[in-house]
């Protein structure tokens, strides 16, 4: 009974308090540090080349099998990444691939606003994964 009366006044006071709501498309929410979003292919800041050499370790380690990597040998035996495709519809954002990468060539961005009408659009190619938007925290 006492609890009921206490609740009554709390609820009554709530009418005059400011709502907690974040006005979604306009306002910003700071998502927790270290939360995992879409994969991001790192780029060497000096040579502007993709660090990934296409060794294929992430392809082996990924439990969902959503990464496809292909490498191609250039002249002088140098190995270059040819194709890097991420199927977002399979990815569970576990972060295994980032942990196991020997070259430190990939990391997790904070990008999480993902929704597509067409399932084909969820397959991300190399050119989209390189885009540097993800390294800083992605606000609204």
């Amino acid at each position: 009974m006492l609890r009921l009366i206490k609740n009554f006044f709390i609820v009554f006071g709530n009418i005059f308090r400011k709502p907690h709501t974040i006005i979604y498309p306009r306002e910003r929410i700071i998502i927790p540090d270290g939360s995992r979003g879409v994969l991001h292919l790192k780029v060497d800041p000096d040579s502007l080349e993709i660090i990934c050499k296409g060794c294929g370790l992430c392809k082996i380690i990924c439990s969902q099998g959503c990464i496809t990597v292909q490498k191609r040998a250039e002249d002088k035996g140098r190995e270059v990444l040819d194709e890097f495709c991420l199927d977002l519809s399979k990815c569970i954002f576990c972060g295994n691939c980032v942990e196991f990468c020997k070259m430190n060539a990939i990391d997790m961005s904070y990008k999480y606003q993902l929704a597509e009408f067409d399932k084909k659009n969820l397959k991300l190619e190399k050119t989209e994964l390189v885009k540097p938007s993800g390294t800083i925290r992605d606000f609204w």
């Binding site: 990815c91 569970i92 929704a115 969820l122």
Partner: peptide, 17 residues
């Protein structure tokens, strides 16, 4: 299926989006 939301689980904002 009209709309696909990837993630495991997706954030609530992604659902609103």
């Amino acid at each position: 299926i009209n709309m696909h939301i990837p993630g495991c689980p997706p954030r609530p904002e992604a659902f609103i989006y």
